[in-house]
């Protein structure tokens, strides 16, 4: 998959960061809400939010004593970045699935006698 620069991979290549990003795509959250939903510590959540914020994908606002994070309103930037990662994973998955299911390569259930070891 071609990307224009390493930005997309750098920002959303980390699984935790991608998870945070996708939670925020559903609705704005506080750090505590994200921490409750994810198997990582609150400081780790904060650090990932900082990276997403510095990368321009996420903004925050104060709400009482809490800080609420949400995806940046110019969401097409965020959406395209997200989709770049989606397509990379999707095409890899497509290739595996297509080759695993090709009719000519599926084992013949009546052909056990001629089984050969996979590696010689």
């Amino acid at each position: 998959m071609e990307t224009n620069g390493e930005g997309a991979l750098g920002l959303l290549g980390d699984p935790s960061r991608r998870a945070i990003f996708e939670l925020l795509a559903r609705h704005p959250c506080s750090v505590q809400e994200l921490t409750d939903l994810l198997p990582i510590s609150r400081p780790a959540v904060s650090q990932h939010l900082k990276v997403l914020k510095d990368g321009g994908l996420v903004v925050s606002r104060a709400e009482g004593t809490r800080r609420i994070y949400q995806l940046r309103p110019d969401g097409v930037t965020a959406l395209r970045t997200w989709l770049d990662g989606v397509w990379q994973d999707a095409l890899t998955g497509f290739q595996k699935q297509a080759e695993a299911s090709t009719p000519g390569l599926e084992p013949d259930p009546n052909d056990h006698l001629n089984d050969e070891p996979e590696e010689r």
Partner: peptide
């Protein structure tokens, strides 16, 4: 813009 992302991540 994307280079900016990459830089800030680094």
């Amino acid at each position: 813009l994307l280079e900016g992302y990459a830089t800030s991540v680094k």
